[in-house]
Write a protein that binds this DNA or RNA. Structure first.
Lengths: 228, 228
DNA sequence: CATAAACGAACGGTCGTTCGGTTTTTTCCG
DNA sequence: CGGAAAAAACCGAACGACCGTTCGTTTATG
């Protein structure tokens, strides 16, 4: 599947994401009317990701955020109850989306090589759609409070586990070579991460996400497929 | 070569690093006696890396730093002239070491496969010796002031270029498959980075740096060597 | 006793957060 | 339909805490 087809198939608008985030935090957000709340949440999240990814979450003042989002300090605090909670919200929002999309894209596929390819592609394309979130999530993990930090690590290991499980299944079926599944999965993740962490590099070189995906797939399969 | 042999061969003590850093910044550091200056610079750099890597450079206050290093605020300012300059100093210190060690380890090797292996090993082992610096350097790049940021990117591309050049030479000699050298180099770097960025993961799984190196080498060579 | 080094209180500024007041939108009754 | 009352949303000055940095004083060294 091409990237554009993928992007359309998952139907992830900023409004949808903000709406589900609103529902999950109804108690903390003081705004009553959904339409108003969603509109401003989109602005707040966009601004927060843009500023944080440019200079780090810790260096983003709430005055920066309020002016970039077009809201006063007071209004801002009707949507978030603290700066730290904003961090939590952003992380939580992305994690659920990633888990959902990955499982949707992998269910029903049984052939290991095909499933591995699909998993790589889905993760890569999703990280392209949600690049600001992926970047943010990677860079700010260590600044999370204890419990949120634990969840972030759990989520990282969960994603890695998806790849490791596929590799193990392929080895059991005899279509993959005997390799270390955990280490292989870790390195696949590392290569997937480079796409959203070093995007400036690939943009400059005019490498498209499809080209990157094909290249990565070629490398992984040449390592893992049994050579006859 | 085993890791321990490598570590001994490069002879990189904290004192040596601080001493050369002192020499390059004689004008900015107010302390006259080398012995005193080196001793405290080691403490300052250790503390700065420890705190920064735990909660980010921006979130490290100079009061944190002064208490962790065992110096008063006033004394601290005899060694650095501003917080931003400390950031610069740390970056600069590591960059020169990396460039030197890489070139020392690669000079005189002509066989591409051997050279590629040596380059991967040297980079991996060096990142193990200087793990706090590598981690810091990766995470704080985007917070650097303009000029320092440019240098950091230049250095990243330089290292990538080392790998790309070796791959190109191997392709020209016919010992490597025809692949995209830049993309291959980028992905090798991405996998090297995972070692020092996700160290907690590998430590927990009791993966040694030697095992990681062998695994990575196997993956890269199985992709890049011509199959006969 | 002279010089080098270390000290820590003090300064102006910015931070996250609050809150009393104002504006905008919705509701409802004559 | 119209406009006043009620509710919702927004505003920004003000607060105490903490930040990076300075500097007059004290302590250590040789």
């Amino acid at each position: 599947m091409k990237f554009e087809a993928f992007r359309k198939s998952i139907r992830l608008s900023k409004e949808d994401i903000s709406r589900s985030l609103l529902e999950e935090n109804r108690d903390r957000i003081k705004i009553k009317k959904e339409k108003v709340a969603v509109r401003n949440l989109v602005k707040i999240l966009d601004a927060a990701l843009a500023i944080s990814n440019a200079k780090g979450f810790a260096s983003m003042s709430l005055r920066d955020l309020s002016s970039e989002a077009g809201l006063s300090m007071g209004a801002l605090y009707s949507y978030i109850s603290s700066k730290e909670e904003l961090l939590d919200m952003i992380q939580q929002q992305g994690r659920t989306v990633v888990a959902r999309i990955m499982s949707e894209n992998l269910s029903g596929i049984n052939e290991p090589a095909e499933k591995l390819q699909k998993a790589i592609q889905a993760h890569l394309y999703l990280s392209e759609v949600l690049q600001p979130w992926f970047y943010f999530s990677y860079m700010e993990t260590k600044n999370l409070p204890r419990e949120a930090h634990r969840k972030a690590i759990e989520s990282e290991l969960f994603t890695e586990g998806i790849f490791a499980d596929i590799i193990e299944a392929g080895m059991a079926k005899g279509v993959f070579r005997q390799v270390d599944p955990r280490l292989s999965a870790a390195l696949i993740k590392a290569m997937l991460q480079d796409w959203y962490l070093k995007r400036w590099k690939y943009e400059r070189r005019k490498v498209t996400v499809e080209e990157y995906g094909e290249f990565l797939m070629d490398l992984v399969l040449s390592y893992i497929l049994v050579s006859d």
